[in-house]
Amino acid sequence: EKRVSWQLDQASLKELMIPSFSHTCGTLLDVELVSRLVKRFTGLDEGVKSGAALVKVAKLVDCYLAEAAVDCSLSLGEFIELAGALPPHARATDDGLYRAIDTYLKAHPGVSKQERKLLCRLIDTRKLSPEASLHASQNERLPVRAVIQVLFSEQNKLTRHLDWSGSLGGVRSPSPNAFGLELPARCLSKREVMAQQVEIKRLKEDVVRLQDQINALQGQLDRLVEKKRGFFRWRRFSLVSGFRNVNESGRSEGIGERDFGEVGFGRHTPIAVDHMKSNQLVKGKTPLRWRKSLS
């Protein structure tokens, strides 16, 4: 094991996929053996191991954890022990470690909330790439506190990025110390500055395009509301017109019944009022207001 640990940076993932032949270990892979090898490697003198070798071993361990996390028999303690065997500065990015933790949470849905917090403490959110941060912010398997830390780290990165771009473009902006941020370790090259300016321009164009889409949707919504209002207004107008036609027809029928008596030939003329009164007194029946005349 000691000789293998000296050359661990030259090993491949396939060579580390050693099956477990121990009766006491319930995992498919010999995770304990790999943990011992990594600890021996990190315990070597600085003259034996270099920074590049440490980075290679860190990537190798993250890939191994992603493969071993699929095993349902892998305990949380073994996973944390192997992931924490490397020093924090060994990983240039924590994307591989995040992928391994996400795989472990998928394969072990019964992990408690406290255990999820222990796993997420292994991740340095400042070392996550934008793609990994976007995935983590939408990952329902992570605790809420871990998601908030990811969002806060991305906000700090964006603020620092805009501050650098503004200072390089000649625009006065607050210093990074005002936000509690660290100053950049080196000056950016001309190519990096141009790339950042192109990225900012693209973001502004995206914002303008989204604003146009919002305005178009708002216009469609206004037209739809106006169309519905016009429909109900026309319906109310048609109902009122129908009622008016019915009333007018009823009035015309009433006038016809009141003004005309029996239907016959000839011309109808009104009779005298005195004669009508005498008929009422003598005959005791309702007089006719109209009579037939042949003249």
Results as ranks from 00 to 15, higher is better:
Lys2Gly: 12
Lys2Leu: 10
Arg3Lys: 09
Val4Gly: 04
Val4Trp: 08
Ser5Lys: 07
Ser5Tyr: 05
Trp6Gln: 11
Gln7Ser: 12
Ala11Tyr: 06
Leu13Cys: 07
Leu13Met: 01
Lys14Gly: 12
Phe21Arg: 11
Ser22Phe: 04
His23Asn: 14
His23Phe: 03
His23Tyr: 01
Thr24His: 09
Gly26Tyr: 01
Thr27Ile: 01
Leu28Asp: 13
Asp30Ser: 09
Val31Lys: 04
Glu32Ile: 01
Leu37Lys: 00
Lys39Ser: 10
Arg40Met: 13
Arg40Gln: 15
Phe41Val: 01
Thr42Ile: 03
Thr42Ala: 05
Leu44Arg: 15
Asp45Lys: 10
Asp45Asn: 10
Glu46Asn: 09
Gly47His: 08
Ala52Asp: 15
Ala53Val: 02
Lys56Val: 05
Lys56Asp: 14
Lys59His: 10
Lys59Cys: 07
Cys63Ser: 13
Cys63Gly: 13
Leu65Ile: 00
Ala68Trp: 00
Ala68Gln: 03
Asp71Lys: 02
Leu74Tyr: 02
Ser75Leu: 04
Glu81Pro: 04
Glu81Lys: 08
Leu82Val: 05
Leu82Gln: 05
Leu82His: 09
Gly84Gln: 06
Gly84Tyr: 00
Pro87Tyr: 00
Thr93Gln: 09
Arg99Ser: 15
Ala100Gln: 03
Thr103Trp: 05
Ala107Lys: 06
Ala107Tyr: 03
Val111Arg: 10
Ser112Met: 01
Gln114Leu: 07
Arg121Lys: 14
Ile123Met: 02
Lys127Gly: 08
Leu128Thr: 01
Ser129Pro: 11
Pro130Glu: 03
Ala132Asn: 07
His135Ser: 11
Glu140Tyr: 05
Pro143Ser: 02
Ala146Pro: 02
Ala146Thr: 11
Val147Gly: 11
Val150His: 07
Leu151Lys: 12
Gln155Ile: 09
Asp163Ile: 14
Gly170Pro: 12
Asn177Thr: 12
Ala178Arg: 14
Arg191Gln: 13
Val193Lys: 11
Met194Gly: 11
Gln196Gly: 12
Lys201Thr: 11
Arg202Pro: 02
Glu205Met: 07
Asp206Cys: 08
Asp206His: 14
Arg209Glu: 12
Leu210Asp: 15
Gly219Gln: 14
Gln220Lys: 14
Asp222His: 09
Phe231Cys: 06
Phe231Lys: 14
Phe231Tyr: 09
Trp234Met: 13
Trp234Val: 10
Phe237Ala: 15
Ser238Arg: 15
Val240Thr: 14
Val240Trp: 06
Arg244Val: 13
Arg244Asp: 07
Asn245Ile: 02
Val246Cys: 10
Glu253Met: 12
Gly254Cys: 11
Asp259Gln: 14
Gly261Cys: 06
Phe265Thr: 15
Arg267Asn: 11
His268Val: 11
Thr269Ile: 08
Ile271Arg: 13
Ala272Arg: 09
Val273Tyr: 04
Asp274Trp: 05
Asp274Asn: 04
His275Arg: 13
His275Thr: 12
His275Tyr: 13
Ser278Asn: 14
Ser278Thr: 11
Leu281Thr: 13
Gly284Thr: 01
Thr286Trp: 01
Lys292Leu: 07
Lys292Tyr: 04
Lys292Asp: 07
Leu294Ser: 14
Leu294Trp: 09
Ser295Lys: 14
